[in-house]
Amino acid sequence: MLIGCPKEIKPQEFRVGLTPNAALEAISHGHQVIIETGAGAGSGFTDEDYTKIGAEIVDTAEEIFARAEMVVKVKEPQAVERRQLREGQLLFTYLHLAPDPSQTRDLLDSGVTAIAYETVTDRHGGLPLLAPMSEVAGRLAPQMGAWSLQKANGGRGVLMGGVPGVRPANVTIIGGGVVGTAAARVAVGMGANVTILDRSVPRLSYLDDIFHGRLTTQFSDAAAIADLITRADMVIGAVLIPGAAAPKLITREQLSTMQPGAVLVDVAIDQGGCFETSRPTTHAEPVYEVDGVMHYCVANMPGAVARTSTIALGNATLPFMLALANKGWRKACEDDPHLMEGLNTHAGHLTHYAVGRALEIDVLSPAKALKI
């Protein structure tokens, strides 16, 4: 199979879909790999790193999309990229379709077969291709929130760990999954007073156990959130409904109950955001203010630490990418029902139920899509 990897063009996105190590693995399995020149530069990989292991460097993304049988990316294809996709081509990347009807329509119109990293599952009910980026985003969230709390950046002027005689920051984390747990580790490590909420009592027991009483756990409901945000210096939104739009857990009206200069960090922004006032931002302009509350809503947080993120993502995607290349997408999905969960579009049909519910679009079952 001819595998192509274009340079990411989303603003301030420095990751790359294929590392040289992943390209070498594909080549060693008998596949051809073409990489757009400069694609790996933001992650610290040179064109020479790819050519010396047998990959071909091409000058333009247009050539990648025209030639490649499988296109491997990091972020969802931008409008100019979507116009180059075609039926019979395989796209393997993050998509986050539920809050993005225009992208969904473009993918359906193109006829491309699109497998989304974020909806591939594992036998434990996890999301193995989302997990490494969730770890990165979770660990970044308190760090970015702490920066936003600085007075010069519009925040309350509160130090996360406080100092002797001055209390630390109050940090509320909504969601105790991969993102929330990673965020809690860093926030606790910074000395903050951390409360983490989740709707699973077994998960709260697990968190209480692993943190040895260094944070507070609380069952997540509307009343608990409403109470905690009145005292919070920082709120980290870390909720996820696989494939679906994130629920809105803090309303515009509730911002008036928060302390002036408090910070909302919305890690769920790729899925539409979990705060009513959230809108996607970039690393160039990451923060905005609504009713005195600072919002950090960067839609590609892991791109800030591109080398770490690229290597972590590549480690996770490699086995699936090889299965798709070695077997073809139909056989790979037939053999692995967890990979089949990643199928979002094929031949003009939407094939993921959570996305269909969110966008009110009819869905063709993945099993039937395999036969088209």
Rank of each mutant, 00 (worst) to 15 (best):
residue 236 I to K: 04
residue 184 A to N: 04
residue 100 D to V: 00
residue 206 Y to Q: 14
residue 55 A to Y: 14
residue 272 G to S: 10
residue 51 T to N: 03
residue 299 A to M: 12
residue 296 Y to C: 06
residue 4 G to T: 03
residue 72 V to A: 14
residue 180 G to L: 03
residue 23 A to E: 07
residue 254 Q to Y: 04
residue 287 V to C: 11
residue 287 V to K: 05
residue 34 I to G: 06
residue 188 V to P: 02
residue 19 T to N: 02
residue 322 L to K: 09
residue 16 V to A: 10
residue 191 G to E: 10
residue 349 H to I: 08
residue 331 K to Q: 15
residue 322 L to H: 04
residue 301 M to S: 07
residue 34 I to Y: 08
residue 313 L to N: 00
residue 120 V to W: 06
residue 89 Q to P: 00
residue 221 D to A: 00
residue 14 F to D: 03
residue 277 T to A: 13
residue 121 T to C: 05
residue 38 G to T: 05
residue 192 A to R: 05
residue 322 L to V: 01
residue 345 T to Q: 09
residue 266 D to G: 09
residue 304 A to S: 14
residue 216 T to W: 00
residue 290 V to W: 07
residue 143 Q to V: 12
residue 228 L to R: 09
residue 257 T to A: 13
residue 341 E to T: 04
residue 154 G to C: 07
residue 131 A to K: 15
residue 133 M to D: 12
residue 341 E to C: 14
residue 361 I to P: 00
residue 351 T to N: 13
residue 363 V to H: 08
residue 233 D to V: 01
residue 215 L to T: 13
residue 109 D to Y: 04
residue 75 K to F: 00
residue 141 A to N: 01
residue 199 R to G: 02
residue 23 A to S: 15
residue 19 T to K: 03
residue 306 A to Q: 13
residue 332 A to S: 07
residue 10 K to S: 08
residue 22 A to D: 12
residue 36 E to F: 00
residue 277 T to F: 09
residue 208 D to T: 15
residue 292 G to E: 03
residue 270 D to N: 10
residue 355 V to M: 11
residue 312 A to F: 02
residue 125 G to A: 06
residue 145 G to N: 07
residue 212 H to L: 11
residue 238 A to F: 08
residue 151 K to R: 15
residue 297 C to I: 01
residue 206 Y to D: 10
residue 296 Y to E: 11
residue 168 P to H: 10
residue 313 L to M: 11
residue 111 G to P: 05
residue 98 A to C: 08
residue 363 V to L: 05
residue 69 E to I: 00
residue 321 M to Y: 10
residue 187 A to T: 07
residue 273 G to Y: 05
residue 199 R to P: 00
residue 265 V to R: 12
residue 351 T to M: 12
residue 153 N to H: 14
residue 235 V to F: 05
residue 232 A to K: 02
residue 293 V to E: 06
residue 235 V to P: 13
residue 190 M to F: 13
residue 253 E to S: 15
residue 253 E to T: 15
residue 340 M to V: 02
residue 244 A to S: 11
residue 269 I to F: 14
residue 227 D to M: 14
residue 97 L to V: 13
residue 245 A to W: 04
residue 294 M to W: 01
residue 311 I to Q: 01
